[in-house]
Design a protein around this nucleic acid. Structure first.
Lengths: 348, 348
DNA sequence: CTGAAAGCGCTTACAG
DNA sequence: CTGAAAGCGCTTACAG
């Protein structure tokens, strides 16, 4: 208060305490050292059961919440998991994300959700920014990324799980299904219904769409029905409106087409709505099939034949796999194939 | 190598260096102190222009990336912004989120996206967990939360922006529009089309749906057309399938209904598809209106009349507002009303 | 099974 | 306008 203050400034002036309850407070209350308290709360092996209980009780009583920043700094590993998906406007990835979160959150991990917009350069920037946060692990969509992006992942040494596709490449962890086989299966279904001129309509043209297209081609070649003129590959983003446009385009160019396999349910739904508008009878004149079994497909007129893809299961299993990897468990399977399911409805 | 090692262990044994380029490395390369380097890189006032350039050059040359954990620990403020939305399966919130991210990411902030599932208890848990991460700011949906949740937000002292609704409560920052007025406007549109028995079909029944319902009631009272029997309030989650079910329910119970205002476009789309299935003519027998102008509404048969809600604008403005608040700017407006737009299409 | 020391990589006061 | 000291709240080795 006066000018003849002590030469040594009072502790209060030097401290920057946030008022936060710290591990030291818990340790003091429990009558142990901070190190022991830290180990007890993390259930680190080597702490007596009684002590663990005592420390936990003290922590609960004080309402202690560990500081993730301090923990990350000291251990150089945060409680973040970076999850990269192409788009949130595709319900598929929302379902995937929900499942991932439902496993990661209870395990104490926060997801940093990054949207790449199917752009490998954007993905690279996100990866770079997320790496600075010392994430504990990574979940990425598919295998298509920039050279630098791949290097960032590899050189980080972080556990990484790839979702939506399968791979037997060494050292790669993934949960997905064969997009090629699913594309083959739905095409085969159309063939089995007696269709002869089956078109493929793809949008976005990401790796998975192209794999489905490849399955389509393979099936038609096997059936002796392949016609390269029956493919419409549009790089624009998949949407209901685009599906309507492409449906009209296909029928104008090739009125003899008797079936269309749309690479995704949203463009298939748009196709179905366009058929209604144009008076094209489905499935009598043209059978229609989609992919993914998105919301509303079972409500269309007629209901849409499609492939149900188990994205919730993919998300949950990928998160569980990542958890195992982050814990350093051994014997974690590398390549989990969750399969897919053909859903035949009225449109085919 | 031998057993007569020095009593003082070599530095290497004590260090836990992560190999990371640190601020100290940059400072050394630039020939300044770490403090100055820190200030220069953060463009903190009080560093000469020449020095800033020199430090930045050194940082760039070394590929320096600041450590968010260390920064958070030292400053007790992270580069995270917690963003809480009810659902990712509602495209509305995806659009909102995309806009938020597009403003926050370039400004150096990461979003922690929390999905509350319209559950105030879940929201409270998320809030508690996110607060431990010392976020720099908060974006939350609406004003409906648990007592404890509100207290967490208030006592944190963190800048917080509420989205989707408006409020003139003191100290509250929000970006949205009047859900009540929008509900009034679309109902008024149906009235202006000569409809007399206008039903309201609501799902989910969150605060905003109820505000739209209130606008609907007010409008019909003003028009002398209010009939409390014409409201269907269903707590289940909004979906295309539910819309179809409710459309059938309404017409079975009250075949005289000549218009339906669905609280959201997904149930309205389901209603339109059900009308097609049931052979109910829209708009001749029943006019149909939705809310939000979601994807596909313009593709329906007939195209859906709805209210376009500027969620991208809400997200962008809310993020910009939060940025201003986090920077401690003064004179930030409290209540931004971005309005809405009536979109009259063929269904009414 | 438990603990004293050091350190993770930054920033906040406090001086000059 | 620049810097030496201390500290943010944890955990990692190292001992015992």
């Amino acid at each position: 208060m006066t000018s003849d203050a002590p030469a040594d400034p009072p502790a209060e002036r030097r401290r920057r305490s946030s008022g936060r309850i710290t591990l030291a407070d818990v340790a003091k209350a429990a009558g142990v050292s901070p190190i022991t308290a830290s180990r007890a709360l993390r259930r680190d092996r080597g702490v007596g059961e009684a002590l663990v209980a005592k420390v936990q009780a003290a922590a609960d009583a004080l309402g202690y919440v560990p500081d993730p920043a301090a923990r990350a700094l000291a251990s150089s590993r945060s409680s973040h998991v970076a999850v990269l998906v192409p788009l949130l406007t595709n319900r598929l990835f929302v379902d995937l994300l929900e499942a991932v979160q439902s496993v990661l959150l209870p395990a104490g991990y926060q997801s940093l959700i990054g949207v790449t917009h199917y752009d490998t350069h954007e993905e690279e920037l996100l990866l770079r920014s997320y790496m600075a946060h010392r994430p504990a692990g990574l979940i990425v969509t598919g295998f298509e990324r920039s050279e630098a992006g791949s290097r960032l992942v590899a050189s980080s040494g972080l556990p990484c799980v790839h979702v939506m596709e399968t791979s037997t490449a060494p050292g790669v962890f993934c949960v997905g299904f064969s997009q090629h086989d699913a594309g083959y299966a739905i095409t085969e279904h159309l063939v089995s219904r007696g269709r002869k001129r089956i078109a493929f309509v793809g949008a976005q043209l990401d790796a998975r769409v192209l794999q489905r297209a490849e399955g389509y081609r393979r099936c038609l070649r096997d059936a002796g029905l392949h016609d390269p003129q029956l493919e419409w590959l549009d790089p624009r983003r998949s949407s209901i409106a685009l599906g309507g446009e492409l449906f009209a385009t296909v029928l104008a160019a090739r009125p003899d087409v008797d079936a269309i396999f749309f690479c995704n349910d949203d463009i298939a739904q748009g196709g179905l709505l366009a058929a209604l508008r144009l008076g094209v009878r489905v499935p009598e004149q043209v059978a229609v099939a989609g992919f993914n079994d998105l919301e509303g497909s079972d409500q269309m007129l007629p209901p849409l034949t499609t492939v149900r893809t188990p994205r919730a299961q993919i998300g949950a299993q990928a998160a569980a796999m990542l958890l195992s990897l982050m814990r350093g468990e051994s014997g974690v399977p590398h390549n989990v194939d969750v399969g897919y399911e053909l859903v035949a409805r009225g449109s085919s």
